[in-house]
């Protein structure tokens, strides 16, 4: 099996690469870090990481000619499993409001807005380990207990229109969406690659889908 981690020169993806390689080492899985459109197209699974702002990630995707179309095709037409991590998940939305209103990939209708910090009562970014509340069972949660801890770093949250796509939430000032699934498209707001053994399980479950 080939898993492609999309390298679109936005943010630091070495931890994502290391964690996928760690999980894949005893399997017949090849982890490819690439921005090559043909490689992405022929992959069995795609990972879309994302760090920095919504706008900077979308801009970076657009810098590589044909990348957005290739990802669109993979996610919407080919319908093979795709995992978005952090801003990678946020970009599924129609629109994001970080820095400036920016059009997203539009795979899961909804928007990305700043977390309400209740007039400074909650510090932002939301950094650290928080529990996930699983609201819907999924293969991605195999061997993951409800209220497991995951590592978060974000100031913005994804608000999907259709609440049925929500698999888990986390509470920080209010409940935020932290795992979504829509057909073949998965996303985590937390960083499974930095969430120790539980996070590696999520990665393992994605590889095993």
């Amino acid at each position: 099996m080939n898993v492609s981690i999309v390298d679109y020169k936005s943010g630091n993806i070495s931890s994502v690469i290391n964690s996928f390689k760690e999980v894949a080492q005893n399997k017949k899985v090849r982890i490819e870090v690439t921005s090559d459109l043909n490689k992405i197209k022929s992959s069995d699974k795609v990972v879309l990481p994302g760090q920095g702002s919504f706008k900077s990630c979308i801009d970076a995707l657009n810098t590589i000619n044909g990348l957005v179309e290739t990802l669109d095709n993979f996610a919407i037409n080919i319908k093979k499993p795709l995992l978005g991590i952090c801003v990678g998940l946020q970009m599924f939305a129609d629109v994001g409001y970080e820095e400036i209103e920016t059009k997203g990939l539009g795979w899961i209708p909804g928007k990305v807005t700043k977390i309400n910090n209740q007039n400074g009562e909650y510090k932002l970014p939301h950094i650290g380990w928080n529990e996930i509340n699983i609201v819907k069972e999924s293969k991605i949660f195999k061997d993951i207990e409800d209220n497991s801890h995951m590592y978060f770093v974000h100031s913005y949250e994804f608000i999907p229109d259709d609440k049925n796509v929500i698999l888990a939430t986390t509470n920080y000032s209010s409940n935020h969406v932290c795992v979504v699934e829509k057909e073949n498209i998965f996303g985590t707001q937390f960083h499974p690659e930095k969430s120790d053994k539980t996070g590696l399980k999520i990665i393992n479950n994605f590889i095993n889908l």
Binding site: N12, S14, N18, S19, K21, E22, Y151, K194, D196, K197
Partner: peptide
């Protein structure tokens, strides 16, 4: 970073954007 899957922060002697880039690329 190949053995630890919790966040890793690195400090000391960082002077420039290039230093930061290098550390992040190494897995910080």
């Amino acid at each position: 970073s190949k053995k630890c899957f919790v966040p890793l922060t690195v400090g000391g002697g960082i002077r420039s954007i290039e230093d930061i880039n290098k550390l992040l690329n190494c897995g910080a």
